[in-house]
Amino acid sequence: MNSRAEQPVVEGTEIRDLMPEDRQEWESLYRHYAEFYREPMNENILGRTWSWLMDAQHPLQGKVVAAVNGKLLALAHYRPFPEPLLGKDAGFLDDLFVLPEQRGGGLGRRLIDAVAQAGQEQGWPFLRWITAQGNAQARCLYDGLTQATAWVTYDLSLNDLGDA
């Protein structure tokens, strides 16, 4: 990853690992994230995802941008995934969300940089993520960081297959 440490620090914010006391603020952010992608959200999903994030044995990890007053402004969830062609784990950025009123100020870029740094520390050769085709604002950020791949993604709903 090239050095982007020169990025201006948004006054009064810090990027850090998600902590147990962040639960309420994290839930609010994650509900906004699900709403943005028009995905249903309920207490079971929130509880399960939170338990994964708080379990040191689970691969899902989380980082947040926190204001001095403790308000969370952005989140990132990421994890290792096996890359068989390389014979090692790489990184996958599952979720990245910045509150709409905070967008354009560099928080998304700083979160990606923080996840990339964590990935380097874990020995990942690369960090991968996907976004919606129409997510123009995020794609503008991502296009400034790296190139989109030539791979096309498919999701096969296993609920629709019936009993095998």
Score class of each variant (00 low, 15 high):
residue 3 S to P: 02
residue 5 A to C: 08
residue 6 E to Q: 13
residue 8 P to K: 03
residue 10 V to M: 14
residue 11 E to H: 11
residue 15 I to G: 06
residue 17 D to E: 05
residue 19 M to D: 03
residue 23 R to H: 08
residue 23 R to A: 05
residue 34 A to Q: 07
residue 36 F to C: 02
residue 37 Y to C: 07
residue 41 M to T: 02
residue 41 M to Q: 02
residue 47 G to S: 10
residue 49 T to D: 09
residue 52 W to E: 10
residue 53 L to R: 13
residue 56 A to M: 04
residue 57 Q to V: 06
residue 58 H to F: 13
residue 60 L to D: 09
residue 61 Q to W: 08
residue 62 G to F: 13
residue 62 G to A: 15
residue 63 K to N: 10
residue 64 V to I: 13
residue 65 V to G: 08
residue 68 V to E: 14
residue 70 G to D: 07
residue 72 L to M: 12
residue 72 L to N: 13
residue 73 L to G: 14
residue 79 R to M: 15
residue 81 F to Y: 15
residue 83 E to N: 10
residue 83 E to P: 00
residue 86 L to A: 08
residue 88 K to G: 13
residue 91 G to K: 12
residue 93 L to C: 11
residue 93 L to P: 13
residue 95 D to I: 02
residue 97 F to T: 04
residue 98 V to I: 08
residue 101 E to W: 03
residue 112 I to K: 06
residue 115 V to N: 14
residue 116 A to W: 09
residue 117 Q to C: 04
residue 118 A to L: 04
residue 120 Q to D: 14
residue 120 Q to A: 15
residue 123 G to A: 01
residue 123 G to D: 01
residue 123 G to E: 01
residue 127 L to D: 02
residue 132 A to Q: 12
residue 133 Q to C: 03
residue 133 Q to G: 05
residue 136 A to L: 14
residue 137 Q to H: 06
residue 137 Q to R: 06
residue 140 C to L: 13
residue 141 L to R: 11
residue 146 T to I: 00
residue 149 T to H: 10
residue 151 W to I: 02
residue 152 V to D: 03
residue 153 T to Y: 00
residue 153 T to A: 08
residue 155 D to E: 15
residue 159 N to V: 13
residue 163 D to R: 11
